[in-house]
Design a protein around this nucleic acid. Structure first.
Lengths: 138, 138
DNA sequence: AGTATATTTGCAACAATGATGCATTAATAT
DNA sequence: ATATTAATGCATCATTGTTGCAAATATACT
């Protein structure tokens, strides 16, 4: 596990630091999406809030994690499982938010369907979020 | 215009107050989606921030406006053009965010396609946001 | 129209979230 | 092992959103 975490950092030309190791490890341990607050609470609150923010920003820039859109204003992050390069996220999968346990899950197998837009609109990227009940809660 | 605004409030059993009139008028004047900050800036900053929050909450509850999901944590609202009843939003349309002018537009004619979810997941509601270039910016 | 009741508003205070500048500390490259 | 570069922690500040309560306003009723 530790090695996998290190490898990801090195592949992305990031220096190996305690906070990056712990935060990235936290992502690998959780299949569901993660909020800033989750990280602060569950990494032993060993680093500064600012460090967590900056680490998350760095990971997003490098394409290690991606943002998930929600209707409320909570920001959630999840690991990019596909081949995301810096600045080029290829995660065109659907996200699922469970109404019961409020977990956010990447449905990596479910692609976002394309839609026909009205005249004049040029699409560039699409996001899709489905809410409902997940397998664990039913 | 004033009458239309009043009618909407009365139809939703809301008392007619200055802030509700102005804020609802602001929605009717703007075809694109609107943020809390937009309202604070453009209604002459005549009422308290708290009033704006509470008015927006009320409008959402009554089904007059709906929330639009975004990848950043900015909350945007737009008028419900379909037949939304209190607690029962029927807006299953796609939203478009322009990368150039960053306007958020309801594509009322474009329905959100349904997707097949993995076993165990029960869908309840879906949101879809497309980014790109809008007609005005191309 | 005038008054009572219910609702809404504004204010104060607070909590959470996020950003920035700078000195200190730690990680990489030589 | 050390110089250089990058990351961290701290202090501080801005923004965003919430809550309780008193004052003001809107509706209902006579």
């Amino acid at each position: 596990m530790k090695n996998e975490v290190k490898d990801i950092l090195m592949q992305n030309h990031l220096s190996i630091t305690g906070s990056r190791l712990k935060i990235l490890e936290f992502f690998l341990e959780h299949e569901s999406a993660v909020s800033h607050a989750d990280i602060e609470k569950n990494t032993g609150e060993s680093f500064d809030r600012v460090t967590v923010y900056r680490t998350l920003q760095t990971f997003v820039e490098k394409g290690i994690i991606h943002l998930i859109p929600t209707t409320d204003n909570s920001i959630k992050y999840a690991l990019c499982k596909n081949d995301c390069a810096p600045g080029h996220h290829h995660d065109n999968h659907v996200h699922f938010i469970c109404d019961a346990c409020s977990k956010t899950i990447c449905l990596d197998e479910v692609n976002i369907p394309s839609v026909k837009l009205p005249k004049g609109f040029t699409p560039q990227h699409a996001e899709m979020v489905v809410t409902g009940i997940c397998g664990d809660c039913k």
